[in-house]
Design a binder for these strands. Structure first.
Ligand SMILES: [Mn+2]
Ligand SMILES: [Mn+2]
Ligand SMILES: [Zn+2]
Ligand SMILES: [Zn+2]
Lengths: 145, 145
DNA sequence: ATGCAACTGAGACTCTATCTCATATTATCC
DNA sequence: GGATAATATGAGATAGAGTCTCAGTTGCAT
């Protein structure tokens, strides 16, 4: 299996773009973080590690990571997007607690089959899906009003 | 079955809030439109019909409609949220063409069951879900590169 | 009618994200 | 290596969504 850097370099090359030190620093930091993150957190972490990089470059790089399939837009909340790296990980979806806002990841074969079934029914050639389930976690079930 | 106005009035009353003419105008317009819409479209339509209402009031009203369960946030795209009214309609999810951006609605019992199954597996009491499937519609399958 | 809490609109403001442009890198060719 | 051209960066300007403030207004209760 290729490393994420190889994948990104090939993706960029095929678009006539270069793997610059800034883009590589963003990629490395994105794969160093195993939680969901947003752009500002990423910027702060890069800064703390002494990387000199502008917000503009980060904002320019993330859509490239998404387009290359290495990274995923997870959800939009608090006025901005949140991401996760996905390359090298099994596909998963998210269960969100409306009480404490925690997010639990899950995988379910039935959902994968549903994608195929629905695509077929509508004549679509599907490429993926995003499922969010909302509810209350065990701890929040008592407190909800 | 209650009308959407009754539902909204009761929701507001229970929060010590009033069903004002502005809020009612927004509600009526939201239920007059059967497509997905965004706030600016809504504002323009209200304006064209001679309603004098500020953007601030619309921005204040939509979260109330969502909280009351009459309206749904469908997706975030082009830098802003898109909505749909759902009261009186069977729950559905969305299939999105990555080529022409068209959106096809569907309903699938397997997905409903998946919500319950996954909630149970993780100890969550679920209240709903949002599934988006991505792919290419029949017309776009040839053109995609 | 009086009092009071809720509400509205205008515009200021915040924040995310994009754009511009001058400067800097990098690849390629000689 | 040096010249050239294409691509990239950073700083700051800009655009746009959404929120907030506050003075004036409305509507309900007594
Ligand atoms: Mn995740
Ligand atoms: Mn819909
Ligand atoms: Zn919880
Ligand atoms: Zn299409």
């Amino acid at each position: 299996m290729k490393t994420e850097i190889e994948v990104f370099r090939e993706f960029l090359a095929q678009k006539g773009m270069r793997l610059t030190p800034e883009r590589e620093a963003v990629l490395v930091e994105v794969f160093a973080e195993h939680d969901h993150f947003d752009i500002d957190e990423l910027f702060m972490r890069l800064r703390q590690k002494g990387q000199r990089i502008s917000r503009a470059s980060i904002y320019r790089t993330l859509p490239l990571l998404v387009e290359s399939g290495l990274v995923n837009e997870v959800y939009f909340e608090e006025g901005h997007l949140h991401y996760e790296h996905i390359y090298g990980h099994e596909h998963h979806c998210h269960l969100r607690c409306l009480g404490c806002r925690q997010i639990v990841e899950f995988r379910d074969d039935g959902v994968e089959e549903a994608e195929k079934r629905i695509g077929q029914a509508k004549g679509f050639e599907t490429t993926g899906h995003k499922l969010e389930i909302y509810g209350y976690c065990p701890q929040c079930q008592g407190k909800k009003k």
